[in-house]
Amino acid sequence: MPTSSAVTTLIALFAIVSPITAIPVFLTLTAGRTPSERRSVALKTALVSGATLVVAYFLGEAILRLLSIDINAFRIAGALVIGGIGWSMVQGQKVALAASASGAAVVPLAIPLMAGPGAIAATITIRSTEGGAFWTNIGVILALTVVSYVLFLAAQPLEKLLGETGLSIVSRIFGLLLISIAVSSAIGAVGELFPALLG
């Protein structure tokens, strides 16, 4: 794969995985945690999301086919989860989907916020269209994992810069963005399942 194609793939996956969007959720779920605990959650989130995309790259299409799950149904299910998280953030409610910050690193941070249905579908598509360059694509996923980890490490300084009020505002804005992403994903999936509905 040419370097320009690898960069394009990285940018596309970064936009879909959107670790920046997950930062307010990361800060909410790790509120009151020590810096070392936050670093641990950041690392686990990055690794789990990266590992999920690698597995999806090699086995995603086969797994969905084995379970008779349509990729669009998978996207709608993920949209519902993401939309629920976004709604809680907009309402200023504490997002509490895991008993611990460590558990939150897996759900909802890594899955479905980052390695969600959209990212998995994109990864499967990349494999099917550029299967001959799979090692380069794996390198792109690993690079995205590192970038995500670095962004999560920068979350705490950002929290100090914004303060409690600023963080609350940003959290609500990103919550609205998550709802928009969820609605857009659901509409796209429904449109593919029922083309006549959208003309």
Rank of each mutant, 00 (worst) to 15 (best):
T3K: 12
A99C: 11
G78P: 02
G83Q: 06
A119R: 00
G188E: 12
V55D: 10
L197M: 12
V95C: 05
L178G: 05
T136K: 10
P35Y: 01
S102M: 15
L197W: 05
V25F: 05
T8G: 15
Q156Y: 10
E130Y: 12
K160G: 13
R33H: 13
G199W: 07
M114R: 01
I20P: 08
S128E: 15
P112G: 03
A51I: 08
T125S: 14
T125G: 12
Q156D: 15
A121I: 05
G50K: 04
I69M: 06
V150C: 07
P108R: 01
F194C: 05
S180M: 12
L167V: 12
P117Q: 06
G163K: 01
Q91L: 14
A6G: 07
S148G: 15
G50Q: 10
M89N: 02
W135I: 14
I179D: 10
A79Q: 06
G86W: 01
V25R: 00
Y57R: 04
N137A: 04
L198M: 15
F74W: 05
F194N: 06
G78T: 05
P117N: 08
L193W: 04
S148T: 15
R65V: 14
L47M: 12
G191L: 05
I23R: 02
P157A: 04
A133K: 11
V90W: 02
V140A: 02
V41D: 04
L167E: 13
V147P: 08
P35G: 01
E130D: 15
E61K: 12
V7L: 13
L53M: 06
L10C: 08
A115Q: 03
I11A: 11
L161R: 10
F14M: 11
V95H: 03
G188S: 07
E159Y: 09
L153N: 09
G188Q: 04
A56Q: 08
S128V: 13
L113N: 01
A62K: 13
S168L: 09
S180A: 15
L176T: 11
S68N: 14
T145G: 10
E37N: 05
R172F: 00
K94Y: 10
A110M: 01
I141H: 00
A12L: 15
L67G: 09
K160M: 13
F152G: 05
Y57N: 07
S18I: 07
V41G: 00
V150F: 09
A155T: 04
Q93L: 09
V25G: 04
I169L: 11
S100Q: 03
K160I: 13
L27N: 02
D70C: 09
W87V: 14
A143G: 05
A15R: 14
V190F: 14
A73Y: 13
V25H: 00
